[in-house]
Design a protein around this nucleic acid. Structure first.
Lengths: 123, 123
DNA sequence: GAGTACTCGCAAATGATTTGCGTATTTTTT
DNA sequence: AAAAAATACGCAAATCATTTGCGAGTACTC
């Protein structure tokens, strides 16, 4: 099943991937169609095996579910995404839950700015 | 200029709006085309008069810039967005800046879950 | 008042993602 | 193991928010 190829690519990647990136990688091993990639990704998301998050560029990024909580620092110059595990949002979530009764199940957090590399080159 | 109508709708709204919502509102006063709305919105964003943020639904939401920092609790049932001003991310930003040298200029934070209203009805 | 610069409307283009449909492949049933 | 039922997949067309080209209207300048 082609699903295994797709899932493996995601599993072996250290950062989140777009459908097209996954398609490109999988295509090197087997014949596959982009729509199959999308269908499979949606399937994996439904089964909670991977997560999908839409970034400010309006593109969906997929990554393995149940890994340590991660967020991304996205450079507006080079567009690279640097993962960070700093996230104290859980505290905020608890506070919100208490004060508003809203039952929060997930959150997305995205930082934008310029990465050290681009800062250097900007001189 | 039609820009004023658009800007006013945003200024008078207590929460963020989509291009279509703005279009619908402005249309009640004057004749206007959707593409004009989009063009104007991009213009206002460039001038830092309003901000645009892309949510998980892949739709852009616009709101007045330079207001107090706000984030949204989005109900996955009724899809309503409830603003909250709880946000201690500034602390996290400072920490990241210090530890990684990444120059953060903005961030987006979005909470998902079920709002109190829907929780009640879900019974 | 001619020349130049915006502002807009309209229709077509864009790009990521989805979907319909027919075929192939796998799984289940007998 | 063959028939039947279910699932996976390729291909092309559709979708939907947003953008863009172009031509016409309007304002601003000299």
């Amino acid at each position: 099943m082609k699903k295994d190829y797709i899932f493996n690519v995601i599993k072996n990647s250290s950062n989140s991937l777009t459908a097209e990136e996954i398609y490109n990688t999988v295509s090197q091993s087997i014949n596959i169609n982009l729509s199959t990639v999308y269908r499979t990704l949606n399937n994996l998301v439904e089964k909670d095996l991977i997560t999908k998050s839409v970034r400010q560029d309006k593109i969906s990024y997929y990554e393995l579910a149940n890994t340590e909580h991660k967020h991304y620092l996205i450079c507006d110059k080079c567009n690279q995404a640097y993962p960070t595990d700093m996230c104290d949002i859980e505290k905020i979530e608890r506070k919100i839950k208490k004060e508003t009764g809203f039952n929060i199940t997930s959150h997305t957090l995205e930082f934008h700015g310029i990465c050290p590399e681009c800062l250097k080159n900007a001189k």
